[in-house]
Design a protein around this nucleic acid. Structure first.
Lengths: 206, 206
DNA sequence: TGTACATCAGTGAACGCGCGTTCACTGATGTAC
DNA sequence: TGTACATCAGTGAACGCGCGTTCACTGATGTAC
């Protein structure tokens, strides 16, 4: 729980509001949060947030930005856990992507669906670019081709589409689907290792 | 526009409400609709919908159901436009999937994110099963293997993930991305034609 | 170290809003004879 | 064909609700001298 409420001055309200919204989004869905409820969780009046955020959109925007940081950090850590060119890097990236989606499906959805209060913001654009570049570099190192090549981008895009679709379908069907691993062979297949994946490499849906 | 408003008895209110919600979802996003606004569009008092729907959820559920019908019909038409086993069938399916997502991104999102009022409903489950089975059959015919085989399911799943992810990423980035075709070679590659796609086969994102 | 004061970060009451839902009602339609 | 009546599908007024936002305010904190 968040409460603690020492005294008049809260000290950490900005962060706690973001955290409260993050929790609410996971508990009640992408639109299940409100300033009012976040304030209740932080033990604060509903006027307090306006010392830290311009309005509703602004609070959500910063919440999503925090989430994107976490997301990118996971990807980075995953990539760093194996040496450059190691195929396991790609698998690790895919796993990180999926596990974030499963751990924080609510915010994951918002990250990819909420364009209104986000688009055009420099922070977000920069983060997107970083993420894309990270993927490109891993793919390029694996194939031993230039990062800026068309082939790199095509491979990275194919990987991204697959993992993204896989992640979304997983969180959508969370009720019936058991915990599934990322189909590793499929990732390697997509990135250009010309081995047709074996039948058992893609987990079925039931 | 929907209005027309002959007289007291509307005659077609149920359908017009569904249509109004469908429109609103596209105009204002998955959560941008309300019973009140739908009634305004249909030229009817806010109490009228309760003659046709149990409550808010019920109206949305039927709206989504209609959308799923359209979605499935498109897929079916796409599949039927080429003879069984023809590789173009698979490409046509992918295109149909993407074009629905692009034409109706709002409802497309709801279809895949809204679990609450949908899960467990027989209609929806049946439709899902039908769609999955359609894909399985097309894949199986293409590879000339049994529909019920594990390989069929693995291929179909891989295709579905890819196209789904591709579609989602497309509608998310709708502002910056121009109209992109489905990367046809990638679909055939995924389904098991062991031809590594050429560089130009996957459209880049910019 | 002590005091004066500006600034910061809260309060809590109030507002207007649009919403979902209900209620008793009523006009239009379909059916039996 | 005409009338009586049940049923259907609307009305419109009202309700309570939670929300986002604002306002004048006030308690706590930091700084200058």
């Amino acid at each position: 729980m968040i409460q603690e409420k020492k005294n008049y001055h809260h000290g950490d309200l900005r962060e706690q509001l973001i955290e409260a919204v993050t929790q609410l989004v996971e508990e009640d869905g992408p639109d299940g949060w409100s300033i009012a409820e976040a304030c209740r969780r932080a033990g604060v009046s509903t006027a307090a947030p306006y010392r830290h955020f311009q309005d509703r959109h602004d609070l959500l925007r910063h919440t999503v930005l925090r989430a994107m940081d976490r997301f990118f950090e996971r990807m980075q850590t995953a990539a760093d856990s194996f040496p450059a060119g190691d195929a396991r890097r790609i698998v690790a990236l895919g796993k990180a992507y999926l596990s974030f989606a499963r751990d924080e499906p609510g915010i994951f959805r918002i990250m990819f669906s909420l364009t209104e209060p986000l688009e055009g913001h420099a922070d977000v654009d920069a983060l997107n670019t970083d993420a894309k570049f990270l993927l490109d570099r891993v793919v390029a190192a694996h194939l031993n081709i230039p990062v800026e090549s068309e082939q790199t981008r095509a491979r990275a895009m194919a990987l991204w589409c697959f993992v993204h679709g896989y992640s979304f379908l997983q969180i959508d069907a969370k009720s019936k689907a058991e915990a599934h691993a990322v189909p590793e062979d499929m990732l390697l297949y997509l990135v250009g290792e010309a081995i047709v994946p074996s039948d058992s490499s893609v987990n079925s849906d039931e």
